[in-house]
Write a protein that binds this DNA or RNA. Structure first.
Lengths: 243, 243
DNA sequence: CGCTCGATTGAGCCCCTTCAAGGTGGGTGG
DNA sequence: CCACCCACCTTGAAGGGGCTCAATCGAGCG
């Protein structure tokens, strides 16, 4: 029953009621647990035959580098998230995945995933569902960068992180612990680090949200949500169509 | 053998060698062919139980609207592309899909797709591969919006479109026909329509690319590619790992 | 022949960037 | 135990890329 406590089980259970055998299959994923130091690159851009991982503790991020040294972070990964699921299913990786903090992650081989797909369809559905949710998040980030101001982007991103962390029990309505630097935020939101600092100050002074000393506190959740046009639909928890 | 000519078959064949039975299954997808006028919305944001479609002729786009009336186009779809694949596999649609030109598209029911997945694994792999490629494109668009200048975004987008159209036989090294308005480009690239116009003029005056009267002409392909940092890896055609 | 959609161009402004210069705190080594 | 360092945060000043507002023009079309 230990698995009921793992972040992945917790997240998937929010989408699909998993059977005993599903849980058993899931527990096999947790065998090859490994630890990585902060800054370690788990998957490199251009790498072939990469493994996938399930993040159990700590934070990671996936990003692409540009030739001029600029970086665009595609997504931040928190406990319960898959790392490099696409990389293992399909060819070479088009992005890098790096540990932000010290992390523990279970290595998942292509073989494990394909096995699960043929023997545990319900679990496979849940996994595909999680992958689909990841894609929906990337799309929402695209909207963020394309059509929202710096302040809105920041608000939206912090709200999304908060919602995701709540789902795995790492935050609540009041806020969450956050190991990201302002440089991480800048590379995620397509801003300069300097401007990130100013935006955070503005949001704090306006009594909306405070991000200091590794802690995000929602000072006025409803107003923040309105400003950011934050709608949780794309993170949805109502489960897949296939039951 | 008519199917060998269809854009979808042509695209998937670039990834996986399809068997006769795969081709037969694929041909069943083309049964429920339908026609839609330009501007018609095939799938609405928030809609449940949507169908998927395979676009056979014409152009479409998927987008999200913001409360202030702004629009962010997520992707442009051309013949051979799936429309709303995620919408049918997983819950409510988080985006709208609209016909840009008059289009012909084959409706694909959830049932068809699941059947194909269990009975034609090779085809299923190809379909998953196509879906993965779509996601990689969204990620590249994210990088585009987050870290590139207006000029680079435009160059990158036109090069990507050109590469995709070549794959289905609708363009060559010299250029391609393009029904997009400058408003479409603006909503895709996160710019204003006015600025799109200026950027196009600049690229034309610099002898890089000309977009006029519905035709895109690459005047200096190598230089354009360098400016845009365009690397086709993420559109790759070498096929999936699973053979 | 008016109407509407799309393309084009000018003027002025502002959000965000770059450059620059401190601050602060935790870790490390002498 | 202190001195130094490095990573990160903070703030100011100045510039520019892209925006908004506004007007004109061409073309398809009912």
């Amino acid at each position: 029953m230990l698995n009921l406590q793992s972040p992945l089980t917790r997240k998937l259970s929010a989408f699909v009621a998993l059977s005993e055998s599903d849980l058993a299959t899931l527990s096999r994923f947790d065998r090859r647990s490994r630890t990585f130091q902060a800054g370690h690159e788990l998957i490199h851009e251009g790498q072939t035959k990469a493994s996938a991982f399930i993040l159990s503790t700590g934070w990671a991020c996936s990003y692409k580098m540009l030739p001029d040294g600029e970086r665009q972070i595609v997504d931040i990964q928190i406990p319960g998230d898959f790392l490099g699921l696409r990389s293992v299913l399909f060819r070479t990786s088009d992005h890098t995945i790096e540990a932000i903090t010290r992390i523990e992650a279970s290595e998942v081989l292509a073989h494990d995933i394909l096995d699960a797909f043929s023997h545990a369809p319900r679990l496979a559905t849940a996994v595909l569902w999680a992958a689909s949710r990841d894609e929906a998040m990337v799309v929402e980030h695209l909207v963020n960068l394309g059509r929202r101001t710096a302040e809105q982007r920041m608000a939206h991103f912090l709200l999304e992180l908060g919602a995701r962390l709540q789902l795995v029990g790492l935050g609540d309505q009041t806020g969450f612990d956050c190991p990201l630097t302002q440089y991480h935020l800048a590379d995620t939101l397509g801003l300069s680090a300097v401007h990130v600092n100013r935006v955070l100050r503005k949001l704090r002074e306006d009594g909306l949200v405070t991000f200091q000393k590794g802690r995000v506190v929602f000072d006025d959740f409803p107003r923040l949500r309105d400003i950011a046009d934050f709608d949780t639909t794309y993170l949805d928890q109502d489960g897949p169509i296939l039951r």
